[in-house]
């Protein structure tokens, strides 16, 4: 039994393992990793931005000590950038070289048919592995000891690209017309897909994945996360700032602060040697947690109440 197997043997092990790598998570999240490993199914992670979707994949790779291969999706991403591409320059160069040796090859051949037959003997050398540039998805399949494949923000890609993913997600293989089917060599990769829900992911893709929704954490969990990420911050301040953020999330905002913002804020407050929250301080540092002027204006009016609430509890 290898280390990885032992680690992925139970949910609590995984939770502890992730925690050791400073990723504090609920049992739901740990269960997702557990199932992803045991069942070898891709995990589609959804949730508001900044709750640690990408981070989960990174931490998992770190924990299992596997390489992380990341494919960032964007509009217009196609197979040439995601799976493979032919090395055109090399192909062209070789054509030029071969042109000169063509006479030698065809020497002695009688008639057109025989010449063509001789050429056929060479096979499709231009479309073989030597001329192929593997891109992230293919690379992930070729990784000997397995790897963690992160397909980030899959909702940003086009519909067509989603269909392209289906084969690799369900069978861990890709079909390349000129070569044939490439299968995962030994260990199939552990696949994470993340989505911000800017558009609906197709049912076909969802069907092939486990679906994990990471919501904003509750107060306890968030405090533990802050503790793990910014250990220097005093407990009392930590409690205050988490309470404040939690209150903020209930307001009607254009973009509610996520965990990453809470962490940034904690670091900011630490830098300013803060002991306890007060209204002025909050007002000055509000731009760390709120990213729209509109939101800042909205909250500014309520700062005093919110702060006193956070301090009092």
């Amino acid at each position: 039994m290898t280390d990885i197997d032992k680690l992925a043997g139970s949910v609590s092990n995984l939770q502890a393992g992730l925690e050791a790598h400073r990723y504090i998570c609920s049992s739901q999240i740990a269960t997702a990793v557990y199932l992803a490993y045991q069942l070898r199914k891709p995990v589609l992670i959804e949730g508001p931005p900044g709750v640690g979707k990408t981070e989960l994949a990174k931490t998992t790779a770190e924990m299992f000590e596997l390489p992380l291969i990341r494919l960032q999706c964007y509009e217009g991403l196609d197979e040439a950038k995601a799976i493979y591409e032919w090395k055109y320059g090399k192909q062209l160069l070789y054509t030029q070289v071969l042109k000169e040796t063509l006479d030698e090859v065809l020497q002695g051949a009688k008639g057109f048919t025989e010449s063509v037959n001789r050429l056929h003997e060479f096979g499709d050398i231009f479309f073989s592995e030597e001329f192929m540039e593997p891109r992230p998805l293919l690379k992930a399949l070729k990784e000997e000891d397995g790897c963690v494949l992160l397909i980030d923000e899959v909702d940003k890609s086009d519909h067509e690209f989603e269909s392209l993913l289906l084969e690799i997600l369900s069978d861990f293989q890709v079909s390349i017309p000129e070569i044939g089917t490439v299968k995962a060599i030994a260990e199939p990769p552990i696949v994470f897909l993340t989505s911000n829900n800017t558009r609906e992911i197709s049912d076909a893709l969802k069907r092939r994945c486990l679906h994990l929704y990471i919501p904003f954490p509750d107060s306890d969990l968030e405090q533990r996360i802050i503790h793990a990420r910014v250990p220097e911050i005093p407990p009392e301040l930590r409690r205050q700032l988490v309470t404040f953020i939690q209150e903020l999330r209930d307001l009607d905002l254009k973009k509610v602060p996520a965990i990453s913002e809470t962490i940034d804020w904690a670091r900011t407050l630490l830098l300013l040697h803060t002991e306890s929250l007060d209204a002025d301080l909050v007002r000055d540092t509000l731009n760390v947690i709120l990213k729209f002027q509109e939101d800042i204006d909205n909250v500014a009016a309520e700062i005093t109440t919110l702060t006193s609430k956070a301090v009092k509890n």
Binding site: V11, S27, Q28, T31, A32, L35, V43, L44, D203, K206, R207, C209, L210, H211, L212
Partner: peptide, 13 residues
């Protein structure tokens, strides 16, 4: 709870 977590990952999307 474990069962619930597990099924929640597999069934609803």
């Amino acid at each position: 709870e474990f069962l619930k977590d597990t099924l929640a990952l597999v069934l609803p999307k």
